[in-house]
Amino acid sequence: MPLTARGEAIFERIPNSAPRESTGSIGCEIVRHEELCIGCARCASVCPTGATETSGTFDPMQLFAAPPDSRRGALGEALRKIARHQPSGPIEVPGRVSSFRSIVYEAEKCIGCGACARICPTGAVEAIPVSAAEIASSRGGEAA
């Protein structure tokens, strides 16, 4: 992926710099807070590289971690009342159940554009900008 003019400018200030091969560009660091996720999958629909995708399974532990006033939280509360033991792991989700699916995020494919964080309605995806100074110091240089 070509860099923006600003990206080029940043790299010019850093000695021996080149875009990292795995990510190809400077971007935000994506942090997901799964307990806030409501499974709307908007992050997956806007992701340009397929780094964020909906999976075919769901981990019931996510229900227990969800905020109590949310829909997932209410389901978790009901499940906790009748549970005999801790969930035994992720379960297969039938085709027409769309909102109870775990979202899979692969950092390897991510370019850090932050589209997922912008569209997330609950703040479950956070995009933390990486400053030029941090990039510079990780490469043994100094930002101007």
Partner: peptide
């Protein structure tokens, strides 16, 4: 789905 959830917690 509800049955799978129940099964995962031993009900």
């Amino acid at each position: 789905f509800a049955r799978a959830l129940l099964q995962s917690v031993g009900v």
